[in-house]
Computed example of a mutant assay.
Amino acid sequence: MRYRIPDTILLQAVSDEMVILNPETGVYFTLDAIGTRMLELLRQLQDEEAVADVVVSEYETDRNTVLSDLAGLLAKMAAHGLAEDCGHEAS
């Protein structure tokens, strides 16, 4: 896993979307249904490659697109203090 969501970050499902909030800074994101699914899977599986496998099986998309979208989302979240870049840790 390259990124992780710190325990201090609050996540709340709202309909088929998710709101992610850093209560210390007030920074928040809202994710659509697919972004929500990817983040839920990441928290559960703790592996970006495994997330891509599941998302590809559930949606009509290709693996490279999923990996690129997930990496972009996590990098953006990390830039705003909503995720931590853990580098390339061994599982």
Rank of each mutant, 00 (worst) to 15 (best):
D85Y: 14
A50N: 08
L10D: 10
R43A: 12
S68M: 10
S57L: 08
V51Q: 02
H80F: 13
V19I: 15
R63C: 07
S91E: 12
I9A: 04
D53E: 15
L21I: 15
E24M: 09
D7T: 13
A33L: 06
V14N: 02
A71C: 04
D16F: 04
L70T: 06
L67E: 14
L82A: 07
D69C: 05
A79F: 05
T36M: 12
G26S: 09
E49A: 09
E49R: 06
D53M: 04
F29R: 13
M77P: 11
M77K: 03
Y59P: 00
D32G: 13
G87C: 06
D69M: 08
Q12G: 01
D47C: 14
L67F: 01
M18V: 11
I5G: 06
V19S: 03
I9S: 03
A79Y: 02
D62K: 05
A33V: 10
L45V: 08
A79P: 02
E17K: 09
S91I: 04
V51W: 02
L11Y: 00
T8A: 11
V14I: 15
Y3H: 12
T36P: 00
L74C: 06
L70P: 05
R2T: 14
E60C: 00
M77G: 10
D47G: 10
E40R: 07
R2W: 07
L70R: 01
I5V: 15
Q44N: 07
A75W: 00
E60Q: 13
V14G: 00
I9G: 03
